Simulated scan of single mutants.
Amino acid sequence: MTPTSTPTSAPVPVPPENWLLLDRQICFSLHAASRAFNGVYRVILKELGLTYPQYLVMLVLWEHGDLPVKRLGEHLRLDSGTLSPLLKRLESAGLVRRERSARDERSVEIRLTEEGSALRERALQVPRRIVSATGFRLDEISELRERLDQLTSALDAAALEEDPGNR
């Protein structure tokens, strides 16, 4: 139940003067949750020698194998300018190799090293620890992720409507 509803009635509309209150902003709730997640991930991933963005890169590579930087960026919703420093650090750590594509010199392929592939086994404990940190049941996490995916799709569509030149 929300603070603006009762068990027997529909939600009471929020008056316009309250629309700009910080605690009414879904974007802030998502931002605060994201920062809290990052704090938990920071501690857990330290044991693996990874930052959260590096962990996301590794997840994609463990799932999909070798990928061009462009495709990796598509999976992560990141541009190559953001990915490049991440990939350099992962390469310095010996977890990935960056190689020019034999098929297209302009394209850089990202490949897991043996050490990068082996890290996957140690990373298997991360999701369990995150689930535990949330205090949610697996079905609740699944439902939340589905709703967030729906929200992301709706916002992507709305952004295209707002700025059709940004396709």
Results as ranks from 00 to 15, higher is better:
K88Q: 09
V69A: 11
D139P: 01
L83Q: 01
D23W: 10
T82G: 08
E115A: 14
L72C: 04
L151R: 03
F28V: 13
A158G: 03
F28I: 14
A33V: 00
L160R: 15
T51M: 02
A157Y: 06
V108R: 07
R71W: 07
L21R: 15
R71E: 13
S80C: 12
A93T: 02
S9N: 12
H31K: 04
Y55N: 01
T4H: 15
E91A: 10
R122Y: 09
R120C: 11
P16R: 02
A93I: 00
T4G: 11
P85S: 03
R71V: 10
I141V: 12
R98H: 00
E161F: 06
R100W: 01
K70M: 11
R128D: 11
R97P: 04
N166C: 10
R145A: 01
L144P: 01
V69L: 06
G39E: 05
L56G: 05
K70I: 12
R42F: 04
S153R: 12
A158R: 11
L56H: 02
A118W: 09
A157G: 10
R147S: 00
R111S: 13
V108E: 13
L30H: 02
E146D: 10
H31R: 08
L124C: 09
I110N: 04
P15S: 06
L124R: 14
P127Q: 05
S5R: 13
A133T: 01
E63R: 14
P11Y: 14
T2K: 13
P127F: 02
S107L: 09
A154W: 04
L56V: 10
V57K: 00
L119M: 11
E99R: 08
G39H: 01
L21F: 14
A154D: 03
G165L: 14
L144E: 01
V69Y: 06
L160G: 11
R145Q: 06
L20G: 13
S101I: 04
A102H: 02
P53V: 03
V108L: 09
L30V: 04
L76Q: 03
Y55K: 02
N166L: 08
A158F: 05
V108P: 08
G81Y: 14
A154Q: 04
A102L: 14
A158Q: 10
A118G: 14
W62T: 06
R106Q: 11
L138P: 14
R103F: 02
H31Q: 12
P13H: 04
P15E: 12
P164R: 07
L95H: 05
V40N: 03
V60K: 08
L56F: 01
H75V: 03
T2S: 14
S9D: 15
P85D: 00
E63V: 04
L87T: 01
R42K: 09
G49A: 02
W19V: 01
T4K: 14
V40D: 08
G135R: 00
A118K: 13
R35S: 13
E115H: 09
P16A: 07
L45M: 06
T51D: 03
R120T: 03
F37N: 09
F136G: 05
F136Y: 12
L20Q: 03
